[in-house]
Design a protein around this nucleic acid. Structure first.
Lengths: 221, 221
DNA sequence: TTATGTGTTGCGGTTTACCGTAAGGATTGT
DNA sequence: ACAATCCTTACGGTAAACCGCAACACATAA
């Protein structure tokens, strides 16, 4: 089993909960961080000390507080770590159960497991740890279909960016200018209208505001 | 100290975390629920059995799953309980740190304490339990100012309802009709425009879509 | 090569949002 | 009672969103 594990979660009680799960699995050397910046430092330092962590369990959402931080959430942390340590086993333990999120983390950042906090969170986390130790992937049942090929990934990064701009109060022609300036294609107002129309149909939204609200609810933007 | 306590939270690890805190305070009789409906039943049953709970600690957000539920979140549970048991001490233990939320729960539903999950969640929860036992209120520092009178409660239920309708894709004249039908005043399109304008200025939003996005981020709608 | 489909762009017309102004009604204070 | 003020409503003009149509570019397949 894993020997040295780092838990990163800003909730102190979850931190403790995870700690218990690890203890139950016989893992002795457990460290915790409530900030992503700290986590990154600890991992670097551990390698420098020739006693690297062999598993990272991290949340995604971190509350802002008085402290200035560089890595503001788990996504940042994972992205930063993957540059230097592509082989470090990572388990995400998060409340977020969006397929899009899982997809990006697993396919883009090679996260080894994605466990959703919830009614059976700790049971699943325990299983995930065992799986990852055996070089197997683990996904919570709610998000298991994230990677199944039949899932229509009809909406792409362009769509996300487009709606995000809308949610920031940008007008369609402002978005068009923005896309032109950033070499994002298509960029014409007409194309933007068309995409939005497609998205409105897809999400059964009556207008742009409705669309933004729905996509925010889904956590897509 | 309290003798019999009910914890309601759908996250099993938090449930365990809270359980530990209670144990540390010497509380022996602790029960848990992962569903609000169950919690309500347990409380009713306990009274029927002449062994009522003397403290409730509950989350607000509950994930949907396969089960049909009547009380879909902590707000529902609290509202339902307050009808029958206005004296039951209630501590809310939630991730939500919105002043508006705290305000409603404390002033409208007489919640005895509001603790935000976070970096010091369990420490604060422990303190909250002690306070409530001594008939004192407790609010996490992040939301303590929720009840301070100087907090401008400029936005009222009308504003919330208005923006919520917008987020549902309703047009301004549809909202006007809706308000007329439900005897909500003011109801004219002109007044709706004016209110929205006020809100846009207040929230520094460029247009309705932007406003909805911002208010959703703040959890106001 | 032509044909066919897909995606991008442009344009005109209609609807809705946005903004200022002004009139009428209700409330408050004197 | 009166005036001052605030709130509600109506209206008109402009900007933006929405919608359908058509032209063009590009790729793929017959």
């Amino acid at each position: 089993m894993f020997v040295k594990v780092l838990i990163v979660d800003d909730h102190d009680d979850i931190n403790n909960g995870v700690l218990e799960i690890l203890s139950a699995l016989g893992i002795k050397n457990i460290q915790q961080s409530q900030y992503c910046d700290d986590a990154q430092l600890k991992i670097k330092r551990a390698i420098f000390d020739k006693q690297p962590f062999d598993l990272l369990i991290t949340d995604l959402s971190f509350k802002k507080d008085h402290r200035e931080v560089r890595l503001k959430n788990g996504d940042d942390l994972i992205a930063a770590l993957r540059i230097d340590y592509p082989e470090l086993p990572i388990i995400v333990y998060s409340m977020i159960d969006l397929l899009q999120k899982v997809r990006v983390l697993v396919s883009k950042h090679n996260v080894n497991a994605y466990v959703c906090k919830g009614r059976k969170g700790s049971v699943e986390l325990s299983q995930a740890i065992k799986n990852v130790y055996n070089n197997e992937q683990f996904l919570s049942t709610q998000v298991a279909r994230a990677l199944s090929p039949k899932t229509n990934i009809e909406i792409d990064d362009f769509d996300i960016e487009l709606v995000k701009q809308l949610s920031l109060g940008q007008l369609q022609n402002e978005i068009s200018d923005y896309f032109k300036a950033n070499n994002i294609s298509p960029s014409s107002v007409s194309s933007i209208e068309k995409r939005l129309n497609k998205l409105r149909i897809q999400f059964k939204a009556d207008n742009a505001t409705h669309l933004v609200a729905k996509m925010k609810d889904l956590g897509l933007i």
